[in-house]
């Protein structure tokens, strides 16, 4: 009997390992290995060679050769990042743009997700499909389409002029407004879906009870619905804030040349200056700046969740 239980346990733990192994392998292959590659390049020096940096670590040189090359690694790129204020300005500017965009996205996405969760049950699948639908077209093509909408002689200005609302075309393209429009449009589904998922599961009897006890709808929303939707809201914020910080394509296509973002700075180092090591250092620091606060935040969230249990 006891032996049976142990073998069943062993089988279960083996199964558990198998289940974990797949995502683990995925992370290892598609995240950790490329990351360590970038990390390795960030400690090397620019060179006119193939690849354009040195030293190139390889096992061909044997252990002694490898050790010799390891000594050539340098932290000079990171020192440059600290010493030159233009990198910090770009980081700060990226975070500002990402924060403002995230707020805008929440303001737009919340009512949509709320409306979807409250829609008649038979409509909901269709509504979710409509949110996902744009993903069927290339992201880049959708951003390009905004150029056609926002330009001086574009759709929006033509409609507004036809209606007689304006007599001069509005200058939107190549301004930061175009960047925000493009970002909000592109990232909206990533906020709507987690919000909808939590709002849809919301126990409606709580709201009925509140109504029975004479709580006005607005107050019921802020005391019941909103707090209960927080997990979805937080998940959505992370899903949009992180990629927006590193966003490159939208500001490049829709914005003016003055929009400062770290993605562009990285581009200039990598392509104009052919400084792959410094560009790698920029990428590593960006990752650390984003990941460390998020890990701390999630740890705290977890602790709180455990406490309240």
């Amino acid at each position: 009997m006891a032996a049976n239980v142990t073998s069943a346990n062993a089988r279960a733990s083996r199964l558990r390992w198998l289940v974990i192994a797949v995502p683990l392998a995925w992370m290892l292959i598609f995240f950790l290995i490329p990351f360590f590659n970038v990390l390795k390049i960030s400690f090397s020096t620019r060179a006119r060679a193939m690849p354009p940096y040195k030293p190139v670590l390889s096992m061909v040189d044997g252990i002694a050769g490898l050790f010799d090359k390891l000594q050539q690694l340098t932290i000079a790129n990171y020192l440059t990042l600290v010493a030159d204020s233009k990198y910090w300005l770009a980081y700060v500017s990226s975070v500002q743009i990402a924060l403002f965009s995230t707020v805008l996205i929440v303001l737009v996405a919340y009512p949509i997700a709320y409306g979807m969760a409250r829609a008649p049950r038979q409509w909901r699948t269709t509504l979710v499909m409509l949110v996902i639908l744009p993903f069927w077209t290339s992201f880049l093509i959708r951003v390009y389409a905004w150029i056609g909408i926002l330009s001086d002689e574009g759709l929006l200005n033509q409609v507004l002029m036809q209606l007689g609302l304006i007599d001069q075309p509005l200058r939107i393209l190549t301004t930061n407004w175009a960047v925000y429009i493009g970002i909000v449009y592109s990232y909206l589904p990533f906020m709507i879906l987690p919000l909808y998922a939590t709002l849809e599961k919301l126990d409606e009897t709580l709201l009925e009870a509140a109504e029975d006890l004479g709580c006005p709808p607005m107050k019921a929303f802020w005391t019941i619905t909103f707090p209960l939707s927080l997990p979805g809201l937080i998940a959505g914020c992370f899903l949009v804030f992180i990629p927006i910080t590193g966003e490159f394509v939208i500001p490049d296509l829709l914005g003016g040349s003055g929009t400062l973002m770290i993605g562009k700075t990285l581009w200039y180092e990598f392509f104009n200056n052919r400084n792959w090591p410094l560009a790698s250092a920029v990428a590593v620091v960006l990752l650390l700046l984003l990941v460390v606060p998020i890990v701390i935040f999630q740890n705290q969230q977890q602790k709180q969740a455990e406490k309240s249990r």
């Binding site: 233009k86 040349s257 400062l260 700075t265 104009n272 200056n273 052919r274």
Partner: peptide, 13 residues
């Protein structure tokens, strides 16, 4: 090249 890129970034900004 580094100097030119840095100056260029000033022009853009």
């Amino acid at each position: 090249q580094d100097a030119m890129t840095a100056l260029w970034q000033q022009v853009l900004a």
